[in-house]
Computed example of a mutant assay.
Amino acid sequence: MQVPELLEHVGSAIDIVGVAAIVLGAAVSTWIALDSWRRRNSTKIYEPYRRNLGRSILLGLEFLVAADIIKTVAVTPTFTSVGVLAVIVFIRTFLSWSLQLEIEGRWPWQKDETSPTAG
């Protein structure tokens, strides 16, 4: 097996891990929310559910970006494929930042003011 072929398989495996992270994260988030609602009969499950779901999407996006980088740069490094990769990474990075803002209420580069170690 040649190196490009091996890297293509590695990239595909990481793609699968990314999709699995999103699907499993959504299932686990839903399970936790339903269990929380059932046990406490609480109506305040939306925010934690949304936060957990957003975290699983963020994790999946990170894996998908890594897989795209491996498959594009290591396997087919043409100007067209690198350009397409740049657009994909830009879109996924924007989505990640937007999700981060929704989950934590701050941009990724801002300090966490609720943390005990934050100034």
Rank of each mutant, 00 (worst) to 15 (best):
I22Y: 06
F63A: 06
W109L: 06
G18V: 01
V82M: 02
Q100L: 07
G83I: 00
A27G: 13
R38L: 10
K111P: 04
L59G: 12
G83D: 07
V82L: 04
F63W: 07
L59W: 08
N41W: 00
T93R: 01
Q110C: 05
L85A: 07
S29H: 05
G54Q: 04
A66I: 03
L7E: 11
V75G: 09
D15R: 02
V75M: 06
E62D: 14
T114Y: 01
E113K: 10
R40W: 15
V89S: 02
A20E: 09
S36C: 10
S29Y: 09
R92T: 11
S115Y: 08
S96R: 11
I22R: 08
P116Q: 11
T78E: 06
S29N: 02
V65S: 03
T30Q: 12
P4G: 15
W107I: 14
L24E: 02
L7M: 15
A20H: 03
F79R: 14
L85K: 04
I16H: 13
T72L: 01
G105Q: 00
L53K: 00
A13E: 12
V3A: 10
L59V: 10
E47G: 13
Q110K: 08
A118T: 10
V28C: 04
T30G: 07
G105D: 00
V73C: 07
D68M: 04
K111I: 13
V28N: 05
V28T: 14
W31S: 10
V73G: 03
S36V: 11
M1Y: 12
Q110S: 13
V89A: 02
F90Q: 15
G11W: 00
I70P: 00
M1W: 12
I69Q: 01
W31Y: 01
T80W: 14
F63E: 01
F79I: 08
I14G: 00
N41S: 11
S56Y: 10
I88G: 01
G54D: 02
T78V: 12
L53F: 09
P4I: 08
F79M: 14
L95E: 07
L34N: 11
L85T: 06
V10Q: 09
W97C: 07
E113N: 10
S56D: 04
Q110F: 05
Y49N: 05
E5L: 08
I45E: 03
S96M: 05
G60T: 06
D35W: 14
